Simulated assay, not measured.
Amino acid sequence: MTQTPSKVLYTAAATSTGGREGRAVSSDGQLDIALTPPKEMGGTGTGSNPEQLFAAGYAACFNSALATVGRRERVDTSGAEVTAQVGIGPFERAYVLTVALTVRIPGVDLAEAQRLAELAHQVCPYSNATRGNIEVTVTAIA
């Protein structure tokens, strides 16, 4: 099912030249980054790559979703850390991604942290965009 917002609040735009061995620049110039494939994929690994950018965006977005859930549930999540590991590999005749989200919320017991992380997974726009398309795991840690 396609999800469409009732109102678009912000649109980010970035232009890539040279693909994985090029550059990505946001329309406002705040992001201007050299791209190179990682060593594991035959590159030099001297620049960033699309998977790192996706991981950073997903982790930040998920952390914000966790803060929203924390406010709703009246749980302090202000010290939360979210790590997103984005993998890429072949599948049939294409490449696909995997995501492993690891959530740590200081001062919150593990079962409660997992519950909050699962709720955040329902709220996060990145989670909603990837749901049903790629494997995403969400794990709370102490």
Rank of each mutant, 00 (worst) to 15 (best):
L31T: 01
L31E: 05
I33R: 02
I33Q: 05
P37Y: 02
P38K: 03
P38R: 06
K39F: 03
K39M: 05
E40A: 15
E40T: 15
M41D: 03
G43P: 01
T44R: 02
T44A: 10
G45Y: 11
G45S: 05
T46C: 02
T46K: 13
G47C: 13
G47A: 07
G47L: 05
S48W: 12
S48Q: 12
N49I: 09
Q52H: 11
Q52Y: 04
L53H: 07
F54A: 02
A55G: 06
A55Y: 05
A55L: 12
A56S: 15
A56L: 14
G57R: 12
G57A: 05
G57Y: 12
Y58L: 07
A59M: 10
A60L: 11
C61I: 08
N63A: 15
N63T: 13
S64Q: 11
T68W: 10
V69H: 09
R71H: 12
R72K: 14
E73I: 05
V75W: 08
T77E: 00
T77N: 03
S78E: 04
S78M: 08
G79C: 01
A80W: 00
A80E: 01
A80T: 03
V82R: 01
T83C: 01
T83M: 00
T83A: 08
A84Y: 04
Q85C: 00
V86A: 08
I88P: 01
I88C: 06
P90V: 06
R93L: 00
Y95G: 00
V96L: 10
T98N: 10
A100I: 00
A100T: 02
L101I: 15
L101P: 14
L101T: 11
V103Y: 00
V103H: 02
I105A: 04
I105V: 15
P106I: 13
P106W: 10
G107E: 11
D109E: 15
